[in-house]
Design a binder for these strands. Structure first.
Lengths: 143, 143
DNA sequence: TATAATCCTAGCAGGAAGGTAGGAATTGAA
DNA sequence: TTCAATTCCTACCTTCCTGCTAGGATTATA
């Protein structure tokens, strides 16, 4: 499995915020209740999004979260990359992993590179806006 | 990460057997040494391939393993499906998992179905023969 | 000052990945 | 017949990650 609950929940948070967008901040509690996810767990996920400056936050009464940009400007890939350690299909392609000494003569490396490319292109071709309403999806978002 | 060492090693076994194909059976020890993988671990992986009737085996002296079909006839996807529990990118698409009660109104399900499709199409488009010699790769096997 | 909210650190249970160990069964050859 | 080479089978172990929980510190509003 490539995508953990962290990544899936992060996307659902983004969609929820996009769908309930106003000038006000939206509280964790509201998101958690609508999405039926534990507040405490969701908290840790949302904090990643705040740290990555994808969300704006405000503490104290009336506080909460808000998207920083328009939903069209967030690709699915850019969000998943924040919560998943890596989207690489195999460990040898993970960022920060040293180049494999056998890379030159590896029979399968090109296979994994190709798979990686296909996955990334797909995930970069879909935005949060595309996910908001089924039936009004982007060109790249074809099942 | 989508693909475990089990899957990667299984592919390497298939390639090794394809490249050293004769009428004789090829021993586990030989494969393990060429691929620099622990004999004991490789043994458990190869047994999956034998059980799935992808390989033919012979016990005793002079025994070993052999491909049952030509390398062109094994897609990468068909091999990986034997060793990986599931190639689905998210748990809700795994075979045998009950349909999610929220599937009807799920904002992200089509996203995952699309990703699943892209991954499977890619992996079905490459065969063991494609992996044998770089430079002589199939049409679908483009980086 | 009370209350509502986010921030922060720590920890934990369960399962899977990756690998090891030891021996039983089978086959071919001396 | 016996020995050596080989696959088959079962059990186990360690380490890491996922998914989740707990408890409190900090900040803003009314």
């Amino acid at each position: 499995m490539l995508i953990s609950t962290k990544g899936r929940y992060a996307l659902r948070v983004m969609i929820d915020l996009a769908e309930h967008q106003t000038d006000d901040f939206i509280s964790l509690r509201g998101i958690a209740q609508r999405q039926e996810i534990s507040e405490k767990y969701l908290e840790s996920i949302i904090r990643m999004l705040v740290k990555a400056r994808v969300l704006e936050s405000l503490r104290g009464k009336g506080g909460g979260y808000k998207l920083k940009k328009a939903p069209e400007q967030y690709t699915v890939g850019s969000i998943l990359r924040l919560t998943e350690e890596s989207l690489a299909p195999v460990s040898c392609l993970e960022e920060g992993s040293d180049a494999c000494p056998k890379a030159g003569k590896c029979r399968t490396l090109p296979l994994w590179q190709g798979l990686d490319k296909v996955i990334n292109e797909y995930l970069e071709g879909v935005t949060i806006a595309d996910l908001m309403e089924q039936g009004d999806v982007g060109d790249n978002y074809v099942i």
